[in-house]
Simulated assay, not measured.
Amino acid sequence: MTDTVVIGGEPVDIDDPCAMARALRKTELRIATGGSVESVEIDGERITYSRASLPALRQLIDQYGAQCAAKTGGTRTRFAKSVRWS
């Protein structure tokens, strides 16, 4: 039996780092574009805020992305630089 968590309204297998990274990137995009904003009106004043931490979300995306790359033999994220003189 796999463990699942609901991210963005969709169940995601927590043992699949690639699926977790995809779901978290969708959430990051939704937050960055204002899709995850809460509004509250108190005494005629409207307050709008987001309950997410983008730096913490970015850290999770990087973590699961690295695990996914390790699992699948994914692409390199760093390359050696060289200079060629002619």
Rank of each mutant, 00 (worst) to 15 (best):
M1C: 08
M1E: 10
M1W: 05
T2A: 15
T2K: 14
D3H: 10
T4N: 07
T4Q: 13
V5S: 10
V6K: 07
I7F: 04
G8D: 01
E10I: 08
E10T: 14
E10A: 15
E10N: 10
P11S: 13
P11Q: 07
V12E: 06
D13R: 12
I14M: 10
D15F: 05
D15V: 04
D16N: 15
D16Y: 01
D16T: 07
P17E: 03
P17W: 00
P17V: 04
C18F: 05
A19D: 10
A19K: 10
A19Q: 12
M20S: 07
M20G: 06
M20T: 04
A21P: 08
A21C: 13
R22A: 14
R22Y: 06
A23R: 04
A23E: 05
A23L: 08
A23P: 03
R25E: 15
T27L: 15
T27P: 00
E28A: 11
E28G: 07
E28Q: 11
L29C: 00
R30I: 14
R30W: 05
R30M: 15
I31L: 12
I31P: 03
I31S: 03
A32I: 08
A32C: 06
A32T: 11
A32P: 00
T33A: 04
G34P: 04
G35D: 03
G35T: 03
S36K: 08
S36D: 07
V37F: 01
V37E: 08
V37P: 00
V37W: 00
V37T: 14
E38R: 13
S39W: 00
S39G: 03
S39V: 12
V40H: 09
I42W: 03
I42Q: 09
I42N: 06
I42S: 07
D43S: 10
D43F: 02
G44L: 06
G44H: 03
G44S: 04
G44V: 11
R46F: 03
R46E: 14
R46P: 04
R46S: 14
I47S: 04
T48P: 02
Y49G: 04
R51C: 05
A52P: 00
A52E: 06
S53R: 10
L54H: 11
A56I: 09
A56V: 12
L57N: 06
R58W: 04
R58K: 14
L60Y: 03
L60R: 15
L60N: 13
L60I: 01
L60S: 15
D62M: 05
D62V: 05
Q63M: 15
Q63I: 08
Y64C: 01
Y64S: 02
Y64D: 02
A66K: 08
A66S: 11
Q67I: 01
C68S: 12
C68Q: 09
A70V: 00
A70D: 05
A70G: 08
A70T: 02
K71F: 06
K71R: 11
G74D: 11
G74C: 08
T75D: 09
T75M: 04
R76S: 11
R78V: 09
R78E: 10
R78G: 01
R78L: 05
F79P: 02
A80E: 11
A80I: 08
K81L: 15
V83W: 03
V83N: 02
R84I: 14
R84G: 10
